[in-house]
Design a protein around this nucleic acid. Structure first.
Lengths: 150, 150
DNA sequence: TCGTGGAGTCTCTTGAAGGAACTCAAGAAG
DNA sequence: CTTCTTGAGTTCCTTCAAGAGACTCCACGA
């Protein structure tokens, strides 16, 4: 069983929260995704305390979600998404989709997503990797997996 | 522009985090999903402080994600997912999918998902609601939407 | 050689989480 | 009836994390 911020848990949700569950972490990833890649840019855009930004960036780099790249000789770095981090951004898209649907209100969603493959403004849809039909929380049974607690 | 925990942000990710971004909230939703619906069950399963559990449950009920149902005359309640909450569990499935993929290690994933429609052990796959092709973070352009900040 | 800008540290204050004991109401037990 | 027990919280106190803002360090460029 694995140690998480929330205790000893054999739970992929708790483990994921250990990586991006702390305050600001998802917003930092969003910002890196949209192109704010430097410390000062992130700090200015988010209005986060510098101390916490330092801690979060280190944590995300330690977990292989962000990569620190020097862009000059002096201590000057840019943060970039790794493959692992890019898949977290998928999660952020789903999160944004929920917010667009339930919290946007009159004004409508603050951002739109244009899908490269079809060129249309669209949104993500959750489908079964096996049969391609819609797959939502009510469409599944949960079974213990190989890594389940005993 | 909307007030979030993280400042004034026109961002559906920040707004969603306002609902489920606090520590424990996603795990509370997961527990309610899998059938821990009462205060004492949640407290015992999560090992969360009673004070924080009270705060989180109230917050989730206030945001229409959980519904409080009396199951007896006395102060005895069960918490159930609303439609809004059930769609958050979709998000949790995606979160679990990322954890299964990147954090499960040798032992394999702690839980498996059997899809009702096809009966197979499967996982969620993100697809474009418009064309049905895969839709990941790298497959989209972000555009300002109608609710964007000016 | 002095100033500037990026990327952090340091320190202090405030706010949130943990833990454990306490409350309250209504059946159940005796 | 009176007491016991149980579910669902409250209260209080301590500890840890976040916020704010000043300070450091270092390489270039004027």
């Amino acid at each position: 069983m694995q140690r998480t911020q929330f205790g000893e848990m054999a739970c992929s949700i708790a483990r994921t929260l250990d990586v991006i569950g702390e305050p600001w972490s998802p917003l930092i990833l969003r910002d890196v995704w949209v192109g704010f890649t430097r410390f000062e840019q992130l700090q200015a855009d988010l209005g986060i305390s510098r101390k916490v930004l330092t801690e979060r960036l280190n944590h995300l780099v330690d977990h292989g979600v962000l990569e620190r790249r020097p862009y000059d000789k002096r201590p000057r770095y840019e943060y970039h998404l790794t493959a692992k981090g890019a898949e977290l951004v998928d999660l952020l898209m789903v999160m944004a989709g929920w917010g667009d649907r339930w919290l946007a209100g009159e004004a409508g969603p603050p951002a739109l997503y244009r899908h490269h493959a079809c060129g249309e403004i669209s949104r993500v849809d959750l489908r079964c990797a096996h049969c391609g039909e819609p797959m939502h929380a009510g469409d599944v049974d949960l079974l213990p997996g190989p890594g389940a607690a005993i």
